[in-house]
């Protein structure tokens, strides 16, 4: 694939003895939204968390195969994992702001990077909040505790927090599954904006959402990548029977 940002090949992932990802090979293009769908427990979240090595913290987990990011294996021996995670940002299913102010949440990634310049931080916080389409709603509430925001606002705050350290890739793990339709719509619109600057990979339970937001869609089942193609093809004329059964709602 041309312009591939990430090349995954023969990637396997184990939790102890159980193999939860089986020989995944997939190329993810730059500045596109790649959706990952599949029934619960199909390994889609594990796959997403493999891309920034968030699974490393789980005891007894093990990865095989390679995940090349810009041509370098992120599972290579001398990889700076914290640096990788700064490059590959992540937004979680349940919004998880820190128990700090709105401002400090967004500034967090900059502060742990050792940045002290007040003006630089202020400027970056504002820009990140604007990029996350949250600025107009919180510009007078920057000192408020993040928990005082609504659920949808909290999730956009987490997106702003991820954007503040200028990642190249944004991983989103069912970012709208806990939100109401209005808030979901806002997140989806935001994703369309963000793909101009970032490579986005989004796991979703909701097939309509995948159809709406993603350029390419990958269908996972039982730890295997069943089919991967342009979204319109996956949803109109999939080449595999299994994919068709899933998207027409025969199971899952």
């Amino acid at each position: 694939m041309k312009n591939a940002k990430i090349n995954v090949s023969k990637f396997n992932f184990y939790y102890g003895d159980s193999r939860v990802l089986k020989d995944i090979t997939i190329d993810i293009p730059e500045n596109r939204v790649t959706g990952i769908i599949g029934p619960s427990g199909c390994g889609k979240s594990t796959f997403l968390r493999s891309l920034n090595r968030m699974n490393d913290v789980i005891l007894g987990s093990r990865a095989e195969g390679s995940v090349m990011l810009d041509g370098r294996d992120i599972y290579g021996r001398d990889v700076d994992v914290a640096g990788l995670r700064r490059k590959v940002g992540m937004v979680f299913q349940k919004s998880n702001p820190f128990p700090k102010s709105v401002f400090e949440n967004v500034a967090y990634g900059l502060r742990i990077d050792g940045i002290k310049d007040k003006y630089f931080i202020e400027e970056r916080v504002e820009r990140s909040l604007r990029d996350a389409a949250l600025w107009s709603e919180v510009k007078d509430r920057l000192r408020d505790n993040a928990f005082e925001l609504s659920g949808g606002q909290q999730q956009r705050l987490c997106i702003a927090r991820a954007l503040a350290i200028e990642p190249e890739i944004l991983l989103m793990d069912e970012p709208a599954s806990a939100l109401d339709p209005t808030a979901t719509l806002k997140i989806e619109e935001l994703i369309q904006e963000l793909k101009k600057k970032y490579t986005i990979i989004i796991v979703t339970h909701n097939m309509q959402q995948a159809a709406r937001v993603s350029d390419l869609t990958a269908f996972f089942m039982l730890g295997e990548l069943v089919e991967y193609d342009i979204t319109s093809i996956i949803f109109t004329k999939p080449s595999k029977k299994l994919t068709e059964d899933y998207i027409t709602g025969r199971f899952g």
Binding site: M54, R85, F92, N96, I112, C158
Partner: peptide, 24 residues
Amino acid sequence: QYKEGAIALGATHWQTLYRVIIHG
């Protein structure tokens, strides 16, 4: 989730401890 949030932002183990967990 706090811990995961911090790690996902590239915080090291010590930074996560120091900035997030102690705070919480």
